[in-house]
Lab assay of single mutants.
Amino acid sequence: DLSALRVEEVQNVINAMQKILECPICLELIKEPVSTKCDHIFCKFCMLKLLNQKKGPSQCPLCKNDITKRSLQESTRFSQLVEELLKIICAFQLDTGLEYANSYNFAKKENNSPEHLKDEVSIIQSMGYRNRAKRLLQSEPENPSLQETSLSVQLSNLGTVRTLRTKQRIQPQRTSVYIELGSDSSEDTVNKATYCSVGDQELLQITPQGTRDEISLDSAKKAACEFSETDVTNTEHHQPSNNDLNTTEKRAAERHPEKYQGSSVSNLHVEPCGTNTHASSLQHENSSLLLTKDRMNVEKAEF
């Protein structure tokens, strides 16, 4: 173990290094160091905050020279020094078990990766560091076993998940096959086929009936047209017969005018059967003409 005197000496050296690497504005270890034209180094955030307070150039807090945003430059070497100082402080805390008085939040800088452990060898070769390295080497064999167990647990979990997924996939297939086998029997399929065939026959029977009705309507229309044509021909046949009657009536009127007047009046009210309204109107006109002729003949006879 380190003596108290040596611990104090190391602590004083760390404090001196820390004062050199402090920012003059925030009085902390410089984060993202930036250098000016006057070779003074500050935190990048502190300098941008200072420049944004005034429009135009501002003055350096140490030498009062003008500073602009374009004049600022990043210093990589200074950032490396800060990183190495942080590593020294971490090693000091691990070796002594004491917390550094002016320690900052170094938890963000710590890294437990194997590459980081290899890099620590180049920091300080001390008894405390050696003991700590031995402890780490002793704890390393235990870690692979834990990793193997965790991997086995994960693989077993994956296997159970896969088996569950396969079961879920197989179950719908089985149910679907069961439904297909038990849903419709052979008799049901035959009945469905016969039902479809009967429906098709009914459709075939319905369509000819409609065509037959249309044919019957067409035949009825044709018969009505033929009947009207026969009526017209009958009226045409009746007209010459009426003319013959008129000639006979004229002759009778010349011989017996008194008797014919009474008979002509009675004939006005008689309509021949089986004739249309057109034929009756023609008869009325003929009878009126005959009456006028008879009157003329009677007057001539009187004179």
Results as ranks from 00 to 15, higher is better:
85 L>T: 12
48 L>H: 11
158 L>N: 10
132 R>L: 05
106 F>M: 15
37 K>I: 02
90 C>N: 11
219 S>W: 00
78 F>V: 05
90 C>P: 05
211 T>Y: 01
136 L>K: 02
258 E>H: 13
243 N>Y: 00
84 E>F: 14
148 E>L: 01
155 L>E: 13
229 E>F: 00
210 G>F: 14
102 N>R: 15
44 K>D: 03
270 V>L: 02
301 A>P: 13
50 L>I: 06
263 S>R: 07
153 V>S: 10
22 E>H: 11
114 P>V: 15
39 D>S: 07
293 K>L: 00
296 M>A: 15
161 V>I: 08
111 N>S: 12
231 D>V: 03
90 C>T: 04
98 L>F: 12
153 V>K: 12
155 L>M: 10
44 K>S: 04
131 N>F: 12
147 Q>P: 07
17 M>C: 06
12 N>L: 14
53 Q>L: 09
258 E>G: 13
129 Y>C: 04
3 S>D: 03
131 N>A: 08
257 P>I: 05
12 N>E: 05
187 E>K: 09
64 K>R: 07
266 S>A: 06
212 R>K: 08
216 S>P: 13
89 I>E: 02
58 S>P: 15
207 T>Q: 10
19 K>C: 00
251 R>V: 08
54 K>P: 04
35 S>K: 02
162 R>T: 10
81 L>M: 00
93 Q>E: 09
29 L>T: 09
266 S>R: 05
171 Q>K: 01
101 A>V: 04
79 S>A: 07
21 L>F: 07
288 S>R: 11
136 L>E: 14
84 E>V: 08
138 Q>Y: 05
294 D>Y: 02
4 A>D: 05
118 K>Y: 15
108 K>F: 13
123 I>R: 07
271 E>S: 04
19 K>N: 03
130 R>K: 04
262 G>E: 07
255 R>C: 12
295 R>K: 09
128 G>V: 07
232 V>I: 12
98 L>T: 10
291 L>F: 00
90 C>R: 12
35 S>R: 07
118 K>C: 01
158 L>V: 10
295 R>D: 07
283 Q>F: 00
215 I>M: 01
88 I>T: 13
89 I>N: 10
186 S>Q: 07
264 S>D: 15
8 E>I: 03
82 V>M: 03
230 T>N: 05
155 L>C: 08
73 Q>D: 12
256 H>F: 03
42 F>D: 14
258 E>M: 00
262 G>A: 10
6 R>F: 04
53 Q>W: 07
13 V>L: 05
118 K>L: 13
264 S>W: 03
154 Q>N: 12
194 T>W: 00
3 S>I: 02
294 D>I: 00
160 T>M: 12
257 P>W: 01
43 C>A: 15
101 A>L: 11
124 I>Y: 03
38 C>V: 15
79 S>D: 10
